Amino acid sequence: MTQTETVTAEPESPVDETASPEGDDEELPEDPDDEPGAEGEEPPEDGDVPPGGAERIPEGEFNDSVHGEETETFYSEEGSEVGAAGFAQDEGPLVVPAEPTADAETVGELGPLDAVELGGRERQDDTSSSWIEVVLAEGYGWVESGQIDRGAGLFFFGETQDITDEYLHEVPPTESSEALVESLAEQVTGPEEEMLDAEGDPAGPRWTLVSSPADYDEEFYRVDVTGYLDDSLAGERLFITLEESGAGYELGQLERTLICRRGVADEGLCL
């Protein structure tokens, strides 16, 4: 299975998670009670299966008027692993009903670091909502696309790359660790310009702070940049490690894991 997490090098000095962010575009959590996880809590391990699930719907018991029509995309590959991305803890979770309809009983939830195996079936209803079958610890469930925000959902995770050198001189040291994380996220996201899709809705890349070092007793920040207007690369999960400097904080290491729409090739790149 493709791993959705990576471990970055430990900085020489501890990171200050208490500094407030600077800038108007994205607000980072300031109150520890608003952080994604309790301090010291462990993130999901590779191979952990989220709880929940229900008995699988037999093939002949789907009702097209309720469950939509059968469809097939890259998310019909039974047994492939996908992970949640593109949303913070307080924006989620991804709700998992027992059937591919919003009226069905909720049998599970997926947080921003959860990964699941695909059940191998998909449905699409008359509102153009698509549903993906997933496997949970006690059975099966269905995840609807677009239930949180643009760029959020289930994706395939590719290889992890060290891109420190690409941004080392793009972001100067700052007094605030969170301001530096914000600056890096905006550099990766690209120019601020309004993008609209064919229906006139907002489109294009957006970034989300997924976790800070204190959330899971780690040495790095996680930032998801999603919403790329590309049919292969959906976005990137950034792992940002900072180091103390005379001016406050500077970039120590920046890694990215590719977030893919259609699957991952043997070499770890997006299909």
Rank of each mutant, 00 (worst) to 15 (best):
residue 20 S to F: 02
residue 40 G to V: 00
residue 56 R to K: 13
residue 36 P to Y: 04
residue 189 T to Y: 00
residue 25 D to M: 08
residue 227 G to K: 05
residue 3 Q to R: 06
residue 194 E to W: 10
residue 219 E to K: 13
residue 212 S to H: 06
residue 91 E to D: 05
residue 125 D to Y: 09
residue 253 Q to Y: 07
residue 217 D to S: 12
residue 90 D to G: 02
residue 8 T to E: 08
residue 19 A to D: 14
residue 3 Q to E: 08
residue 210 V to K: 01
residue 116 V to E: 03
residue 126 D to H: 11
residue 38 A to K: 06
residue 132 I to F: 04
residue 35 E to I: 02
residue 86 G to S: 01
residue 182 E to L: 12
residue 114 D to W: 10
residue 166 E to G: 08
residue 186 E to R: 12
residue 38 A to R: 07
residue 107 V to M: 02
residue 214 A to F: 10
residue 168 L to Y: 09
residue 61 E to G: 06
residue 206 R to M: 11
residue 182 E to G: 14
residue 200 G to T: 05
residue 138 E to D: 15
residue 168 L to C: 01
residue 128 S to H: 08
residue 19 A to E: 14
residue 213 P to Q: 12
residue 198 A to R: 03
residue 196 L to Q: 00
residue 212 S to V: 14
residue 190 G to V: 02
residue 187 Q to I: 06
residue 139 G to W: 04
residue 233 L to N: 06
residue 136 L to V: 05
residue 100 P to G: 06
residue 23 G to E: 03
residue 83 G to R: 03
residue 89 Q to E: 14
residue 245 S to C: 13
residue 92 G to V: 09
residue 131 W to I: 14
residue 23 G to M: 02
residue 262 R to S: 13
residue 15 V to E: 02
residue 30 E to K: 15
residue 224 D to R: 05
residue 259 I to D: 01
residue 206 R to C: 10
residue 245 S to Q: 12
residue 216 Y to E: 00
residue 161 Q to R: 14
residue 152 A to D: 01
residue 228 Y to G: 12
residue 159 E to R: 14
residue 151 G to F: 03
residue 18 T to C: 09
residue 90 D to L: 06
residue 189 T to P: 01
residue 175 E to Q: 09
residue 18 T to Y: 05
residue 30 E to N: 12
residue 220 F to I: 03
residue 181 V to K: 04
residue 2 T to S: 10
residue 9 A to K: 14
residue 263 G to V: 13
residue 259 I to Q: 07
residue 29 P to E: 08
residue 195 M to Y: 05
residue 243 E to G: 09
residue 27 E to W: 09
residue 167 Y to F: 14
residue 77 E to D: 10
residue 155 F to N: 00
residue 261 R to C: 05
residue 179 A to P: 01
residue 83 G to S: 09
residue 88 A to Y: 01
residue 223 V to S: 09
residue 70 E to A: 14
residue 258 L to R: 07
residue 269 L to M: 09
residue 122 E to I: 15
residue 168 L to I: 15
residue 208 T to S: 11
residue 265 A to G: 11
residue 209 L to N: 12
residue 74 F to C: 07
residue 260 C to E: 11
residue 78 E to R: 15
residue 216 Y to V: 00
residue 108 G to Y: 02
residue 230 D to R: 14
residue 3 Q to G: 10
residue 236 E to R: 13
residue 21 P to M: 04
residue 163 I to V: 15
residue 236 E to I: 05
residue 25 D to E: 10
residue 61 E to W: 00
residue 148 I to C: 06
residue 111 G to L: 10
residue 268 G to E: 00
residue 187 Q to R: 13
residue 239 F to N: 12
residue 199 E to R: 12
residue 51 P to G: 00
residue 202 P to R: 08
residue 178 E to Q: 14
residue 19 A to K: 13
residue 9 A to R: 15
residue 137 A to Y: 03
residue 234 A to P: 02
residue 139 G to K: 04
residue 248 G to Y: 03
residue 132 I to Y: 08
residue 23 G to W: 03
residue 229 L to H: 04
residue 269 L to H: 10
residue 137 A to R: 15
residue 262 R to H: 12
residue 66 V to F: 05
residue 202 P to G: 02
residue 191 P to F: 07
residue 30 E to D: 08
residue 268 G to F: 03
